[in-house]
């Protein structure tokens, strides 16, 4: 919950000048030169941030899916998808919820396919067994 009107919270997420002011762990800063913030479906969300002590750098490279001002933003990044909802609580207060999910990864997809494969293998074994019995 934030003590700010929803329009302010929305702007903090979608304004080039504001996002770097708060995004990330303390001690990390977005390099403004790297920031791309195209707030529309299919637009890019891109930036590189650096840890001021270690110099370690991290990149986020995402694509906006839904942009429903001032209620909802979603974007994909890697295999994951994040959804941000902005709820007006009245009285100049806003609830912000960020949820992320990992899409079914390749590994899991392969596992599911392998499961199906082994079911067919068993069926094949079974048929072979019946065949042998008939021949016997």
């Amino acid at each position: 919950m934030f003590d700010a009107p929803r329009a302010f919270v929305w702007a903090a997420w979608t304004d080039l000048a504001q996002l770097p002011a708060w995004w990330g762990r303390r001690g990390w800063h977005i390099d403004p030169a790297t920031l791309v913030l195209e707030v529309r479906p299919g637009g890019r969300l891109h930036h590189v941030s650096a840890n001021e002590e270690t110099g370690e750098r991290m990149t986020i490279d995402g694509v906006f899916e839904e942009v429903v001002e001032p209620e909802r933003l979603s974007f994909t990044h890697g295999d994951a998808r994040s959804v941000v909802t902005f709820r007006d609580l009245g009285d100049r207060r806003t609830e912000l919820v960020v949820s992320s999910d990992q899409r079914m990864s390749d590994a899991l997809g392969r596992q599911a396919t392998a499961g199906l494969g082994s079911a067919f293998d068993r069926l094949a074994d079974h048929l072979q067994y019946i065949n042998q019995k008939e021949h016997a």
Binding site: G24, I60, G78, S105, L108
Partner: peptide
């Protein structure tokens, strides 16, 4: 760290298996 999520997401992918389990 948010990007570490990204790195994890594209890693071949024990973490997804763990969470699914």
């Amino acid at each position: 760290m948010f990007n570490r999520i990204v790195e994890y997401a594209v890693m071949p992918d024990t973490l997804s298996l763990t969470f699914a389990a």
